[in-house]
Structures are given as C-alpha cells and as structure tokens.
Simulated assay, not measured.
Amino acid sequence: MRALDVDPIHGTRRTFRALCDAMSRPGTVHQTPTVPADYAVTATLVDHEVTFHSSDEELTAALAGQGRLEAADPSEADVVHAGRSPSWDVRDLNRGSLVEPSAGATVIYRVNELAATPEKDLTAVTVSGPGVDGTTTFGVGLPAAELDALADVQSDYPRGIDAIFTSADRVAALPRSVSLRVADGEYVPENGGDH
C-alpha cells in the first residue's frame, strides 16, 4: 500500500515472512522492511474481507482509499490496531469460541520499543508454550497492566487472541496458544548493573 509507504508486493511479502517467523517462535523479535512496522503488518493482514478497528486516521484513510476498510467496533473486529494506551479493554475483544477458536481477534500494538531481551524501562514478558523451547523472555514497551490483561485473555485456550507487537522496524508476536507471565516490578539486569 503505497499510501502507507509499504511496497504492496515485496514489502508485504517480507512482512508476511517476518510475521510467520514471529508467530512460530513466540517472544522473538524480527525485522520488517518498512517503518513503521505496524503499518506494514496492517497492510499485510487487512483486506476487504477482514473487519478492522483503529483510531489512527492516516491508517484508516489509506485502507479506505484502497477499498480495504471494513470498519468495526473493537469488540467485533477481526483485526484491532492499538497505540500504547488503547481506548478499549483487550479483554473485550473477540476471543473466538471452543468450536471456532480461530475466529478470535488479532491485535496489533504499536509500542515505543521492543527488545529481544528485557531492558530497563520495558516490561519483561516470559512466554511458554508451542514454539518456545522451555521459556523465553523479551521486553516490550507497554504498561504491565495491559500485558496482565493480555495474559488473562490468553488463559482460556483454545480461545484467545493473537497479539502482535511492533516498534520501528521490529515485530514480535504472542499467538493465543502460548502462556505469558509479566515480570513483577522493574527489570533488574542479571549482573546487577545499569543498562
């Protein structure tokens, strides 16, 4: 989608590959070809058959201009785009059903920072489940309360949502099949030093 500075062929193909890697290896960080990554992810996932919610006017206008915007309320949308402090509660998004768990929503968060390892000023999230060898921990620039709410949503497997985190040209994902635990308190490096 050129309106979002996303190459509609090569950019979406490379973004799709990064998304596949992120979803198959939850809690790992991958690079996208376009900045901001949330626009590349949205352009890759959203078409005229997918309902979408976002408060980002540039994003919704670009999708509408391409005939790809089927707007919906957050609680009913297939794909929901969010900034750092969404105006809706992630626990109210569609989690699918026991019969159709794949009908659960996908939420795309735009965060200030995303790191393969926990860092100061980022919330540490420990992930376990399919695609994770034991556990893995990464850092995400979202408030712990938002990630705690996401953990609540993911505790009802097979129902749940797929969460995608984006920052600049990076992406990480937590599919509904994984469990996550948010670190209590501020992250302290193992060596006790400052980051």
Rank of each mutant, 00 (worst) to 15 (best):
M1T: 11
M1D: 10
A3D: 13
D5H: 14
I9E: 12
H10G: 07
G11Q: 06
T12K: 10
T12Y: 02
T12Q: 12
F16L: 15
L19Y: 03
C20R: 12
D21K: 13
A22H: 05
M23I: 14
S24G: 14
P26I: 11
P26A: 05
V29P: 06
Q31W: 11
Q31V: 15
T32N: 04
P36N: 09
A37V: 06
D38F: 15
Y39S: 02
A40P: 12
V46Y: 02
D47H: 07
F52N: 08
H53F: 15
H53R: 06
S55L: 10
S55R: 13
D56R: 08
T60Y: 04
T60Q: 05
A62N: 00
L63S: 07
A64S: 12
A64L: 07
G65V: 07
Q66W: 11
G67L: 02
G67V: 02
E70K: 14
A71G: 09
A71P: 15
D73L: 13
P74C: 10
S75G: 14
A77M: 01
A77C: 05
H81P: 00
H81G: 07
A82D: 02
D89E: 12
R91A: 11
D92F: 00
G96C: 04
A103S: 13
V107M: 01
I108N: 01
Y109D: 03
N112T: 13
E113Q: 15
L114V: 06
A115C: 13
P118R: 11
L122F: 07
V125N: 11
V127W: 11
V127R: 02
G129F: 12
G131Y: 07
G131S: 12
G134N: 05
G134C: 10
F138A: 01
V140N: 00
A145I: 10
A149G: 06
L150D: 06
A151C: 05
R159W: 01
I161H: 03
D162G: 01
A163E: 01
A163I: 03
I164W: 02
I164H: 00
F165Q: 04
F165L: 13
F165K: 05
R170H: 15
V171I: 13
S179F: 11
R181H: 14
D184K: 14
P189L: 10
P189N: 08
E190K: 11
G192N: 09
H195E: 13
H195P: 01
